[in-house]
Design a protein around this nucleic acid. Structure first.
Lengths: 336, 336
DNA sequence: TTGAAAGCGCTAACAA
DNA sequence: TTGTTAGCGCTTTCAA
């Protein structure tokens, strides 16, 4: 098979000529900018509709120095549990973008190189960037700042002057921790992932504040961070059991899933023998028995707000430097 | 915060002027097209490097009627198990695209509307499309054909003159089925998803051919298609147990995962009491006990080949209408 | 209310 | 080997 494609595209000049008016007028009819007679406008719009003329975004872009694209940058090697999160964020971004006549260019960021992001930004293929997650030491954030392209991050960062859209993890974790204490939990184990991810540091802080609120001392013996592999989680669970904790708090859905698996294996009854709860809920925990107490966020809203903020910023409007979105506490059987 | 961004961009004209040569010469030095003095070329390239000038893809695109973007179209509501597949495909596409200086525009396709895909295509925001999966009655394929934009699909379709990149599901399923029979299996149950997906029809056919090869009659009683929910799968497993089958074949990883869960619940030993195998392997089945016999494909290669083929086609080269990629049969403990 | 013309930053005949 | 010139399809002053 080979490509003998001959697309005949109709241009603004064709429309103008067919209607016996100037390109300028056609342009005005379409964009709505500038004055134009109601009648002419209607004539143009009708003609365009009938002959389904589509203005070329490339030409429009060249004239306006815009691309009508934004970049959605996510880690290339996202693990299985992060994908649904990014997917939902992207849906939110997409919805907003479409309403602005924008499209989404994806950039996959390698662990050790943001070459592709650099290409996209330096080549000006996009008008702005949404960065999908932040690291404690984040090359990408720094690069984006230096490049002076408008961008927002999903998550938080300690870099100054960066627009951040995040869930209110601190408040959420603090609240869940408090609630569990009030319901009788005395000794917690906390199992979390890499401390290179800002979100894990934040959740840790929320947990600590929750303890403090209720006048409970932090017990470092039972805080297991940087659990990246299932074996790490299993070891943490074993230790927690040995330490006789009342409740295991997991920083995310995967960890919680793995912890539950371990408890099942060890025939430890939830919640009779031990309680368990997760700082992040997802489909992964939906079908688990018993139902799991957790914090619930809305990644899609995160994406939508991020995109909306980015567009506001691009358009020169004033925007908040940090927006924290809300959450829900789901109290289920796993902590009864 | 607000955006007071003043990007001063250097253009090809600036380069030309600074070097006292014409834009054409600069253009030639960059593109490598046309004759140019070795010395001049070097001068230009050096200057560009130092002042890190980047040609505007928009302007280039306008002049060449190209966008330097391709579209990656996937279902918006992909379930959790499909996401890693699409993710890996995209990595393959991305690798090839980058090597061609192209970027990826994503289009999320709703169940019931391909409005966004239409927008992207009609507005000529991309030079070609990779469609991530096919349906038996596929609106998108039809739309893409009519729009005359270059495109390839990942998967198969009955539409004529469509470039298809697929795994060789028929051969793979046929082979696995045969092998299992040769190893002593007599009575199979087959559990599969929606027959609206081409891939499921194809796998079914492979299974049937495998049976036929070994002279075994197809037993419709034990073919359970359109199992979309976990409850469907569980019911199918129950029925299969009642029918005393030797082996359960699952069409994909999720179904297999659910089937295993059900067998565990029912305390049916694998493989002692019943064997189980999957026509699709993924991370999801990696940590399952016992290890699962399955077919293994490489989504990333799928994406890479799809992109490569698309570019070939765009460039006017002759391409195969249908490419079938290879697979591996993993024989594990679940069918010992 | 409309139009002429210049320009966005590049490529590609065609000349020199 | 290099330059002149005319586009690519749109927006946007500036005039009319």
């Amino acid at each position: 098979m080979s490509n003998d494609n001959v697309q005949e595209k109709i241009t603004i000049a064709d429309v103008a000529e067919a209607l016996g008016i100037s390109k300028t007028t056609v342009s005005r009819a379409i964009s709505g900018k500038g004055r134009i007679g109601e009648e002419t406008r209607k004539r143009v719009l009708d003609f365009i509709e009938e002959n389904n003329y589509r203005p070329s975004p490339t030409a429009k872009g060249l004239a306006e120095s815009k691309t009508y694209n934004i970049c959605w940058a996510i880690p290339r090697d996202s693990n299985v549990t992060a994908l649904p999160f990014f997917q939902r964020c992207m849906i939110g971004i997409s919805d907003v973008a479409v309403s602005k006549d924008y499209d989404i260019l994806v950039s996959m960021i390698y662990e050790d190189s943001n070459a592709q992001l650099k290409r996209i930004v330096n080549n000006r293929k996009v008008d702005g960037v949404v960065l999908g997650r932040t690291l404690v030491k984040d090359e990408n954030v720094r690069f984006l700042k230096e490049s002076r392209i408008p961008f927002v991050v999903i998550g938080s960062t300690s870099e100054k002057n960066v627009i951040q859209i995040d869930n209110d993890h601190i408040k959420a974790c603090r609240e869940l921790t408090s609630i569990l204490i009030m319901k009788g939990t005395k000794r917690f184990a906390l199992i979390g992932g890499s401390l290179e991810h800002v979100v894990n540091k934040t959740r840790l802080r929320g947990f600590e504040e929750g303890l403090k609120d209720q006048g409970i001392e932090l017990d470092n013996e039972n805080v297991f961070m940087n659990c990246e592999k299932e074996s790490d989680v299993e070891r943490a669970v074993e230790q927690a059991l040995r330490n006789n904790v009342d409740c295991i708090l997991c920083m995310d859905d995967l960890i919680c899933y793995e912890a539950i698996g371990k408890l099942h294996k060890e025939n430890v009854a939830i919640p009779d023998k031990i309680k368990i709860a997760s700082f992040y809920n997802s489909q992964m925990l939906e079908n688990v028995q018993p139902s799991i107490t957790s914090l619930q966020y809305d990644p899609r809203e995160l994406g939508a707000v991020a995109a909306k903020t980015l567009f506001d910023y691009i358009e020169g409007n004033d925007v908040e430097e940090k927006v924290l979105l809300s959450y829900e506490v789901l109290l289920k059987n796993s902590t009864q």
